[in-house]
């Protein structure tokens, strides 16, 4: 049995351009998404995730065109998240060539939407994206809360319980982002990742905080994630996806080469 773990480069896309910010602010331009996706494909990425952070609804169609172009030439699974609010949004993305959609805020406001989406399109294409922040004091047992709106709004929902609920509602995978670590390059929140991975029966993608290749290794070995997602280390060509895979392999993790 192959236990190959996945490496998923993520492209944050705003108004049709790849951007990267630190903790969702201070945005830097990182290129044309189609070009960047092509490069990741050549380097051996296992999947590619697009996160649309376009603020204005006028420019929502730009991501659809990006997905269409990428799907025409990149033959690995594509996930699109950001602004997915109804089944029509999902259908539009799938028709454009996405294989999975990430649902975040809409799931928090209307959990039934996840059920409806999974019934309609199958669990395999429903990724529930969870943005979590640690809210416990240092002396207390760890506790993480779900945040929405790019990490600005708390919801009072416990991240572990939420992940379990979303699994019951038909999510096929969880994309777990630590808002504390995101953009900081100090590594994943491994405690959070391990806690969620152990709490659910579906694959968990670790996200938020990758600054070097050892962080990717830890996400698997200590966070027990099924896949690791990173953005900036790949965008600015600090590392290639292939280097990341070789590094993981050197540390005993099976990867697809």
């Amino acid at each position: 049995m192959s236990l190959a773990k996945r490496i998923i480069p993520c492209l944050d896309v705003r108004d049709g351009r790849v951007v990267k910010g630190v903790q969702f602010v201070d945005i830097r331009d990182a290129g044309d998404p189609v070009e960047v996706a092509r490069r990741y494909d050549r380097e051996g990425a296992d999947e590619i995730t697009f996160l649309d952070i376009t603020a204005s609804s006028d420019n929502r169609d730009t991501i659809v065109h990006v997905v269409e172009q990428v799907a025409g030439e990149v033959f690995i699974p594509l996930t699109v998240g950001g602004g997915i609010r109804c089944t029509d949004d999902i259908r539009r993305m799938l028709n454009a060539g996405a294989d999975k959609v990430g649902i975040n805020t809409a799931a928090v406001f209307n959990p039934e939407f996840v059920k409806e989406a999974a019934d309609k399109f199958g669990s395999q294409c429903i990724v529930v994206a969870i943005d979590a922040k640690c809210v416990s004091a240092e002396s207390e047992p760890k506790k993480w809360e779900i945040f929405t709106h790019g990490g600005r709004k708390g919801t009072g929902l416990d991240a572990i319980e939420w992940a379990q609920k979303m699994t019951d509602y038909g999510a096929g995978e969880i994309l777990l982002t630590s808002m504390d670590q995101d953009g900081t390059k100090v590594g994943f929140d491994l405690e959070l990742t391990a806690a969620v991975s152990h709490a659910v029966s579906i694959p968990v993608i670790a996200s938020g905080g990758v600054g070097n290749l050892d962080h990717l290794v830890e996400g698997i070995t200590k966070g027990h994630a099924d896949a690791v997602l990173a953005a900036s280390i790949f965008h600015f060509a600090e590392y290639s996806v292939e280097e990341a895979k070789l590094h993981m392999q050197k540390h005993g993790i099976e990867v697809r080469l």
Binding site: S2, A4, P77, G172, E173, I202, D226, L257
Partner: peptide
């Protein structure tokens, strides 16, 4: 064992076919 089975995996050939050879490096999604 996480379900769905969502990964790149190998296959083992059970009979000869011109379609594929299922070597160790041949992974499918």
């Amino acid at each position: 064992l996480k379900v769905p089975h969502m990964r790149w995996n190998t296959a083992t050939l059970e009979q000869e076919t011109p379609l594929f050879s299922c070597t160790e490096e041949e992974k499918y999604y």
